[in-house]
């Protein structure tokens, strides 16, 4: 009669095998089991965590939206438009939910980022030695706003087109560099398929990679410096 091992024994064997090759248990314990100081036990200390969770939602739903989204704005109706309004919204199973979670997470993210920033400012947590983390945070705020801006064009509907037209005009009104900025943003002499291609690339490849990298730095710095004491 075969002896069936208890599930915990299997778990122990796997964890031990891993731990002999890299101290996983130790690093996971260090990452997760941190005491929260009593003064940080208030709801407004949670805004940063909400930002993190929203970014996780956005990464996940964004990846799944990319299964059906077509970044091609040539023709009328453009594949970009129909891939959102028809394929994702009506044909793909729960596609409307995927887009809805992406949309609402994106909107809430901007709110939460600003609340988090307000809390850090209000509790004076930007002071020495945490200035560097404040700078990283401000950079991530800019990245979040750029993500919101580039993502807004992707559905390629009338609202998206004209909102981006206005945005590009604002960039184009910069002194001296205006026409250069406008051409680079548009990817040509006018707002069109090249613009969508650019905004898609920035929205999907460049900015998410940057923000994930900076989040890692942000959290490392928090762990190194601890949560700031109240004023």
């Amino acid at each position: 009669m075969a002896i069936v091992p208890h599930p915990r024994q299997i778990q122990m064997a796997v964890v031990n095998w891993l731990d002999e090759r890299y101290p996983f248990t130790k690093s996971v314990d260090e990452a997760l089991y941190q005491r929260v100081p009593n003064y940080a036990n208030a709801f407004y200390y949670c805004f940063g965590g909400m930002v993190f969770i929203l970014i996780l939602f956005l990464l996940l739903t964004g990846i799944f939206l990319a299964f059906y989204y077509v970044p091609d704005a040539a023709g009328n109706p453009a594949p970009a438009y129909t891939s959102v309004s028809t394929v994702i919204m009506t044909q793909a199973f729960l596609g409307w939910l995927m887009r809805g979670v992406h949309f609402w997470s994106a909107n809430l993210l901007v709110v939460m980022v600003i609340l988090h920033m307000a809390r850090v400012f209000w509790t004076g947590s930007y002071r020495a030695p945490r200035e560097l983390n404040w700078m990283v945070g401000v950079t991530m705020l800019l990245i979040v706003l750029l993500l919101a801006l580039t993502g807004y064009l992707l559905p390629w509907d009338t609202k998206a087109y004209w909102a981006t037209s206005v945005t590009i005009k604002i960039g184009g009104s910069a002194p001296l560099l205006g026409p250069f900025i406008e051409t680079v943003l548009q990817g040509g002499p006018t707002l069109g398929p090249n613009t969508l291609q650019r905004f898609f690339t920035v929205h999907v490849f460049i900015l998410p990679a940057l923000i994930v990298l900076l989040m890692y730095v942000h959290f490392k710095l928090i762990r190194a410096q601890g949560i700031s004491e109240p004023l």
Partner: peptide, 8 residues
């Protein structure tokens, strides 16, 4: 004028 691939 100018050629604008994919526009219009």
């Amino acid at each position: 004028g100018i050629q604008l691939k994919g526009i219009g």
